[in-house]
C-alpha cells in the first residue's frame, strides 16, 4: 500500500454491524479516521437487514458474532436479495477465533473478504482498497451466492523454479500467494 496514495471514503455509505459497544467503537474509530462520513451503525442482525432493504449501502463491515447471532448470515441473506442493488455490496467480515465447525460456513457465506482480529487500521485500509479494486464476478448456485471463490491474488514469485512451465513465458498461470484471510496472527 502506497502511503502517499489517497483514499476517499467521504461519499461511501458504510454499514457497520457489531453487537458489542467496544467492537462497534473500534470499527467506528477506524472508519471515521479514514474519513468516512456516512456510517450506519447497526447493533442487531434485524436492524442491519432493515437498513439494507431501505438504504443504498456501498460497503458492509460486520462482525461474525453479533450477540450470539452469526453475522455472516446477513451476508448470505443479502446475496440472495432479489432485485436489490445492495445484494452486490462489497462486504468485509471481521472475525475473532473461528471454531473448526464454522470455518466452511464462514468461508462460504459470500463475503468479499474475511479479516481476522485483532484489527489494525493498516490492515483494514488495505482490505478496503483491495475490495474496491476487485473485479471478481458474482456467481449464484443452489448453495452459494457471492463473489467467485476461484480467486487468486496474483503475486509474482521472484525465483522461478526449474520446471519447464515456470521458465516458459505464458507457460502456465503465475504462482500465486492467495488467501481470503488477512491476519497478523501467528500461533502463540
Amino acid at each position: 500500500m502506497n502511503s502517499k496514495g489517497r483514499v476517499n471514503l467521504e461519499r461511501v455509505s458504510i454499514l457497520l454491524l457489531d453487537g458489542s459497544p467496544l467492537g462497534m467503537s473500534i470499527l467506528a474509530q477506524i472508519f471515521s479516521g479514514f474519513g468516512a462520513r456516512s456510517l450506519h451503525k447497526c447493533w442487531t442482525v434485524t436492524e442491519a437487514k432493515r437498513l439494507l432493504t431501505e438504504n443504498e449501502i456501498d460497503l458492509v463491515v460486520l462482525n461474525d458474532d453479533v450477540d450470539g447471532e452469526p453475522g455472516f448470515e446477513v451476508i448470505r441473506w443479502l446475496r440472495r436479495l432479489d432485485k436489490n442493488p445492495n445484494s452486490f455490496a462489497s462486504t468485509i467480515l471481521v472475525s475473532g477465533h473461528i471454531k473448526r465447525a464454522s470455518v466452511q460456513r464462514t468461508r462460504d457465506c459470500g463475503a468479499n473478504f474475511l479479516v481476522s482480529k485483532p484489527l489494525s487500521a493498516r490492515i483494514m485500509l488495505e482490505r478496503v482498497l483491495w475490495v474496491s479494486r476487485e473485479k471478481r464476478p458474482f456467481l449464484e448456485t443452489a448453495d452459494y451466492a457471492g463473489p467467485d471463490r476461484r480467486h487468486h491474488e496474483a503475486t509474482e514469485v521472484e525465483n522461478l523454479g526449474r520446471r519447464r512451465a515456470d521458465q516458459t513465458p505464458g507457460g502456465g498461470a503465475p504462482m500465486t500467494a492467495s488467501g481470503m484471510t488477512e491476519s497478523g496472527r501467528t500461533d502463540a
Binding site: 452486490f88 455490496a89 462489497s90 468479499n112 475490495v131 464476478p137 458474482f138 456467481l139 448456485t141 467467485d148
Partner: peptide
C-alpha cells in the same frame, strides 16, 4: 451456475 458481472458501487 449463474455468473453475474460485479456490480459493486464501492
Amino acid at each position: 451456475v449463474r455468473y453475474i458481472p460485479n456490480m459493486s458501487r464501492l
